[in-house]
Simulated assay, not measured.
Amino acid sequence: MNELKQLGNETNYSFDYSPEVLEAFDNKHPDNDYWVKFNAPEFTSLCPITGQPDFATIYISYVPGKKMVESKSLKLYLFSFRNRGDFHEDCINIIMKDLIGLMNPKYIEVWGKFLPRGGISIDPYANYGQPGTKYEELAWFRMQRHDLNPERVDNR
């Protein structure tokens, strides 16, 4: 009956990129439009050139369709970036595309607030709305305005 494998079981952390740990469950309210938001303030990955660690808060917001991501599996998935060498922009797009593949949300956005390294911080933002729907229009609207009123960033 319960198809979730991570929740309620012993936690095994993978130090290698592991999209297969992501799990979804049925949305009990697929006809409602509502936001689900995750803030992951302990995200780490590696610079693909220097191997130095990068630290960020990852913000994931989505309007679910028929499926939703299970939070423990999301935590384990994000942890699996720990030894992955990708640029900040790649991490954000990979996370977004993996979540789209898992649950086909109506709308999703992923924003990374990376700590400065070498005197500069990078804050990549990506979003997606289902094509041909009002969510596609929402994606363009949010893309144009995503940083007009930035939230307070208190992790730097």
Rank of each mutant, 00 (worst) to 15 (best):
V36K: 03
V36L: 09
V36P: 05
K37G: 14
K37N: 15
F38M: 09
F38W: 10
N39I: 15
N39V: 14
N39C: 14
N39D: 15
A40P: 04
A40S: 11
A40F: 13
A40G: 11
P41Y: 09
P41L: 04
P41T: 08
E42I: 10
E42G: 10
E42N: 12
E42Y: 14
F43C: 04
F43S: 00
F43E: 00
T44I: 10
S45R: 09
S45L: 08
L46M: 14
C47G: 05
C47D: 13
P48L: 05
P48W: 05
P48Q: 06
T50V: 03
G51S: 05
G51D: 02
G51H: 08
G51W: 07
Q52V: 12
Q52C: 12
Q52G: 12
Q52I: 13
P53S: 14
D54V: 10
F55M: 09
A56Y: 02
A56C: 13
T57L: 03
S61T: 06
Y62V: 02
Y62R: 01
Y62D: 02
V63S: 04
V63P: 03
P64N: 09
P64V: 04
G65E: 02
G65V: 04
G65Q: 10
G65D: 03
K66Q: 13
K66Y: 09
K66I: 03
K66H: 12
K66M: 10
K67R: 15
K67A: 07
M68K: 07
M68L: 13
M68F: 05
V69K: 03
V69Q: 02
E70I: 04
S71D: 13
K72T: 12
K72H: 09
K72R: 15
L74S: 07
K75E: 11
K75P: 10
L76S: 07
L76D: 10
L76T: 09
L76M: 12
L76C: 11
Y77G: 06
L78W: 02
L78T: 01
L78K: 05
F79E: 01
S80G: 05
S80V: 08
S80T: 03
S80W: 05
N83W: 12
N83H: 15
N83R: 15
N83Y: 14
R84F: 13
G85W: 04
G85F: 07
D86Y: 08
D86C: 14
H88P: 01
H88Q: 00
H88M: 00
H88L: 06
H88E: 06
E89C: 06
E89Y: 08
C91Y: 04
C91E: 09
C91N: 11
I92Q: 00
I92G: 01
I95R: 05
I95Y: 06
M96K: 05
K97C: 06
K97H: 04
K97P: 00
K97E: 07
D98C: 06
L99E: 01
L99H: 01
I100A: 00
I100R: 00
I100Y: 03
G101H: 10
G101D: 11
G101F: 04
G101I: 07
L102S: 09
L102I: 11
L102D: 08
M103T: 08
M103K: 08
M103A: 15
P105W: 04
P105R: 00
K106M: 13
K106C: 01
K106P: 08
K106R: 13
Y107G: 05
Y107F: 14
